[in-house]
Computed example of a mutant assay.
Amino acid sequence: MTLGEHGALRGIRVIEIGQLIAGPFCGQLLGDMGADVLKVEPPGDGDPMRNWGRGDDKLWWEVVARNKRSISANLRLPEGQQLVRKLATTADILIENFRPGTLERWNLAPESLQALNPRLIIVRVSGYGQTGPYSSRAGFGGIGEAMGGWRYIVGDPDRPPSRMGVSIGDTLAATYGCMGALAALHARERTGVGQIVDSALYEAVLQVMESLIPEYQVAGYVRERSGSALPGIAPSNVYPCKDGQYLIGANQDAVFARLCTAMGRPELADDPRYADHLARGRHQVELDALIADWTRNQTTAEVEKLMIEHGVPAGNIYRAPEMLADPHFKAREAIIDLPTEKWGPLKMQAPFPKLSHTPSSVRSPAPTQVGQHNAEIYGEELGYSADQLDALRAINAI
């Protein structure tokens, strides 16, 4: 099956010259939606993501590089730079996540690429953005999470700031980069010209910080770490059971009343300490303790049954084994089996979100070799002869 044959972005070509997480995840999202993604890797070892993962089995690449074709180009050499310039004339979107100024040093400045192809949209993901006093600094996802406010509020209050178990700063910046690219594609329909999408890691994190800034401006309130609870939002926490833990979210008045009935304590809904949102927030600690006294005498299955019967939002805390065993994941096809050369059918998350008429899909596994599609792209599509490709290999340009 030809890449880009199906999906909302069928017919859109993406050149991805980023590496590690943010740029490649943006490319993954666009590829899942049907775009033809050409992954440009440095000759030799390629993208470091090929060797990222747990233990001896490096599986991250299999997810982030799906739906992509690999070509190699040494962007530090004029010959490699010229290959990207030629590719840019055929593309709709170019993604990069190098430190600002790197493209310019490689003679691949956005204005020069857009001079060759005025319709080209360039997604630039970086730590601090393309402008401002910090723009030239190196920036990784964790730094963006810290500067954007995420790290300070994550963890238990008696311990240093913690982190999530995933690279949320990188993936947020990539997602906003993808969103910007889609908006730029729509704008191009009206204007006929592309534009630059500037996605900074710290600003992507800042976007999901809710009312953190105005809370400080108006009330001088600085959000602090609060563990598994959100201050003033009660009950909404993880509660102990006989055989594990269970998450319950019943902070809305009517839902809280249903929880009280499920617990066999309907009178609590009318107790002045818990009767409305503000009261429950003021008595959050004692309310959590009261609910925990009830749940610790139940199994998770018993609590779940009661929550479902009474319409209370709640759920188990899943790991990979629970996801693979859950019938809802299966019914929704949230996890797919992707045929791979090395691993056989490999389970991974399905494309998301779901579109009713132009569904996203995984049409090909991650390329196994750096430059696996050089002959196909450079030779068949750009017209380079076998001798020309051999000459480029001889100087390590591909």
Rank of each mutant, 00 (worst) to 15 (best):
I196K: 04
I196M: 03
V197D: 01
V197H: 01
V197N: 03
D198Y: 02
D198L: 03
S199E: 04
S199D: 06
S199R: 07
S199A: 15
S199T: 10
A200C: 02
A200N: 06
A200L: 07
A200Q: 08
L201K: 09
L201H: 12
Y202E: 10
Y202W: 14
Y202H: 14
Y202A: 07
E203A: 09
E203K: 10
A204K: 05
A204P: 09
V205Y: 04
V205K: 01
V205G: 01
L206M: 15
L206S: 14
Q207V: 12
V208Q: 06
V208G: 00
V208K: 00
V208Y: 12
M209T: 11
E210A: 11
S211W: 12
S211D: 14
L212Q: 14
L212T: 13
L212A: 15
L212K: 11
I213C: 01
P214S: 08
P214W: 01
E215W: 06
E215H: 12
E215V: 00
E215D: 15
Y216T: 04
Y216E: 12
Y216A: 10
Y216S: 11
Y216W: 14
V218W: 10
V218L: 14
V218N: 11
A219N: 13
A219V: 01
A219Q: 08
G220T: 08
G220S: 11
G220V: 09
G220Q: 08
Y221N: 12
Y221E: 13
Y221L: 13
V222A: 12
R223M: 02
R223W: 06
E224W: 02
R225M: 02
R225W: 01
S226C: 09
S226H: 12
S228E: 13
S228T: 15
S228I: 07
A229D: 10
P231V: 08
P231M: 08
P231H: 07
G232E: 02
G232I: 04
I233Y: 03
A234I: 02
P235K: 04
N237M: 10
N237G: 11
V238Y: 02
V238C: 10
Y239F: 15
